[in-house]
């Protein structure tokens, strides 16, 4: 009896201790969980971020401004900032390209593996040579991408980029409607961000850096 009581006393003590420990552990875990959730909630506010489940860019092949093949392999281990446009575009395209030319040195200082890609949505008029002259004007480290219409379609479809030729019969000066957003690809070839117009140099730079910080924190 005495033995049994002692046993149950110990049992009670052990159970109480266990309960206290469990409660403490539960509390600790729940606090951690809330902290993490709060962190995620804050992080989802990164403007233009595609997260979770960003799309990985795999199947595409275009030509760069030197005439070499450019495929998804060229995106690996680099941050890529992509703008779609065409050289006959007199307003939005040169303005955006100038902004990119302005912020590029600063972006490079923040991460030296960043590349700026200009993809033509008008490959018929924008030959590789024309693209080469065009991008070099804004920065000779920029990469111009062209090819045939099929190749361009493949890339625009992958990124969900809209464009529309306003072609009229016999008009060689036709205009093209196109997405004016900037697309950000991470070093794992994932489309992680989109920066919508209207753009300013400061806004492009800060949005890119915020997205980069977020992705780098994910490990």
């Amino acid at each position: 009896m005495l033995y049994k009581l002692a046993q149950s006393k110990y049992m009670l003590l052990a159970m109480t201790a266990f309960a206290v420990l469990a409660a403490a552990a539960g509390f600790f875990i729940s606090v951690k969980q809330t902290q993490r959730e709060e962190m995620q909630l804050v992080r989802v506010d990164v403007p233009g971020l595609f997260w979770p489940n960003p799309r990985t860019l795999t199947q595409f092949e275009v030509q760069d401004n030197k005439g070499n093949v450019f495929d998804s392999g060229q995106l690996l281990n680099k941050w890529s900032l992509i703008f779609f446009g065409y050289t006959h575009c007199p307003d939005i395209c040169p303005v955006t390209m100038s902004l990119l030319g302005q912020i590029y040195p600063k972006l490079k200082k923040a991460s030296d593996n960043i590349q700026v890609l200009f993809v033509t949505v008008d490959p018929e008029r924008d030959t590789i040579d024309k693209l080469n002259d065009y991008i070099a004007y804004f920065n000779d480290e920029f990469i111009g991408l062209g090819g045939n219409q099929k190749q361009i379609d493949q890339l625009t479809r992958l990124l969900g980029v809209a464009w529309f030729h306003q072609k009229k019969e016999g008009d060689s000066n036709y205009l093209v409607d196109h997405s004016a957003s900037l697309f950000l690809i991470d070093p794992d070839k994932r489309l992680v961000g989109k920066i919508s117009p209207p753009h300013t140099a400061e806004m492009i730079k800060s949005h890119i850096m915020e997205i980069q910080t977020f992705i780098n924190e994910q490990g």
């Binding site: 050289t87 006959h88 575009c89 007199p90 307003d91 040169p94 024309k130 004007y137």
Partner: peptide, 12 residues
């Protein structure tokens, strides 16, 4: 007039 890259035929 915004100066344009070489080869560009439409300016703003």
């Amino acid at each position: 007039i915004n100066e344009a890259p070489p080869g560009v035929s439409i300016l703003a």
